[in-house]
């Protein structure tokens, strides 16, 4: 029972790793929106690059998520 509790707490703590990518994605989209506002014609290209940038930032959050998922759902004998 204590092990289960520790795993649940650990999974929750692991998701603290989503804070950084959250800030990063916010900044990225802010930059992209400003750019589109200044030059609406380049919206398509900016969007593609924005999505790629988001994918890189998001990868870090996904690492945290995978750690949390493994803690939560993989049985440890």
């Amino acid at each position: 029972m204590e092990v289960d509790a520790a795993r649940a707490i650990g999974a929750g703590l692991a998701m603290l790793g989503a804070i950084g990518p959250g800030i990063g994605i916010g900044l990225l989209v802010q930059g992209a929106m400003t750019a589109i506002g200044r030059n609406p014609d380049a919206a398509g290209q900016i969007q593609v690059n924005m999505i790629l940038g988001i994918a890189f930032a998001e990868a870090v959050a996904i690492y945290a998520l995978v750690v949390a998922l493994v803690l939560a759902f993989v049985g440890i004998q």
Partner: peptide
């Protein structure tokens, strides 16, 4: 690693 876990994490988390 980043390719593999990005796709897996997103889709598995979506399923959950």
């Amino acid at each position: 690693i980043s390719f593999a876990f990005r796709l897996f994490g997103n889709i598995f988390a979506g399923q959950v």
